[in-house]
Design a protein around this nucleic acid. Structure first.
Lengths: 233, 233
DNA sequence: ATGAAAAATTGATATATCTCAACATTAAAC
DNA sequence: GTTTAATGTTGAGATATATCAATTTTTCAT
């Protein structure tokens, strides 16, 4: 509890978990942000943002982990990416229609800053370097989706599951042993297959000793083999 | 041939086929663009831009039609969208790495303007309204890809093919009878299936009298039924 | 600790989809 | 116009994947 208050009282100018993007702001701009932000803590499982709702703020994740996903047809979702601490979250709604076009749910207890959208836009229009970096960030996200579209439509299940695990390894945890933050069902949403198929593939991967799963931890034993599976699709 | 020269000599300030985006520029800005653009005519089938190459210019299509597609695994492609006259084409490469992240090939004889990227960026940084509209355009494209990702991964083949045809109807031609600019193979690339499957679905749709194909023209006979197929996936 | 709910597992079966191979038609090149 | 190449068509068979139903394990609230 002590930690809760400490964090929420911390000012942007002292923040250690700021996204690279906000690191480009000067002191006055940061104070402007600070005066127009809301800081909220979420428990694992809670919805941080719901697709379709009005976008009043942009987000910056200070700590924890979350999944960012598209809600599709008949309740099915596609996880676009995992959100890490210091990740900025804007999205195409900023300029299109001021709505959120994806949902975000906390996977771990997470601390999130909500920065007023108009304030954010104001700074974008006055700070050239900031604007440029924002666009870089946005563009990177778009390329991730391009990639995802290709691999989800052109690879078979083993390749897609390998890609999902490699994504967690390469981009999220950056080590061969990491906590299983995603349920089998969520893994299936990340790799566009049924829950049962995800279970079977993980079992196969374990049988072939490519991975080991125990105590809510996943260890990648043979990353080269996984990369090969990813490669051959 | 006369037409070729006439078009290529036309100045931006007199251009009738300018994208909405460039319509926001004032006379001086247009003259700046005019002085730093190249105008090129392409024959149907020619490659306008190749994925992976250096992005020296952004594009604006004056006339004709083109396909914009991602080159994926083992030569397979995914068509992202059809480019119409007056469409602006930038892409995530502008801010990410100055490379093209998709390829563009002319479907019909097409006339395309190439605007110097640095000039384009310069105007972006000086004309607020222009910048805002550019971002709207970019964001709309991103949402198209979100949509595509969902429908390609969560619908079955009949729904995907219905979506492809409805896309041509609703967004490209806006009438129930239109020229078959895409081969069966290209239609399969638009709906993420094999060429043979695309052929079969079109045959099925024809048998059920939802569409009619003759003389390089496709006519949608029962759009409500198509929408229903799209809807049920 | 206990029971209820949620998640994971499994194998059998049904279905969707691709691949292959053979052939037909159309467009392009000479 | 004839030949050649590209595109389109078809059905059969193989394969990938989803669905279903039954069971076990884990998690969570009381």
């Amino acid at each position: 509890m002590a930690e809760y208050f400490e964090k929420s009282l911390k000012r942007c100018t002292d923040c250690q978990c700021m996204s690279q993007l906000f690191g480009l702001l000067n002191k006055e701009e940061l104070e402007f942000v600070d005066a127009n932000k809301i800081h909220v803590n979420f428990k694992a499982g809670e919805t941080i943002k719901k697709q379709g709702t009005f976008m009043s703020h942009v987000l910056s994740v200070n700590s924890g982990l979350a999944k960012l996903y598209l809600e599709g047809i008949e309740g099915r979702s596609a996880i676009l990416r995992i959100v890490k601490p210091s990740n900025f979250i804007g999205g195409p709604g900023i300029y299109h229609d001021q709505r959120h076009h994806f949902s975000i749910t906390a996977l771990l207890d997470s601390s999130v800053c909500f920065i007023d959208l108009q304030v954010f836009k104001k700074i974008l229009s006055t700070n050239q370097v900031f604007a440029e970096e924002f666009l870089k960030d946005f563009s990177r996200d778009v390329l991730t989706v391009y990639n995802r579209l290709i691999y989800l439509t052109q690879k078979q299940m083993p390749g897609r599951m390998a890609d999902a695990l490699l994504y967690l390894h390469d981009e999220i945890f950056e080590q061969s042993k990491f906590p299983m933050i995603l349920s089998r069902f969520e893994l299936s949403e990340l790799s566009a297959m049924s829950r049962e198929s995800a279970v079977k593939l993980l079992r196969d991967f374990q049988k072939e000793e490519l991975i080991r799963i125990s105590d809510h931890e996943l260890e990648i034993l043979d990353i080269d083999a996984l990369r090969k599976i990813s490669h051959i699709g």
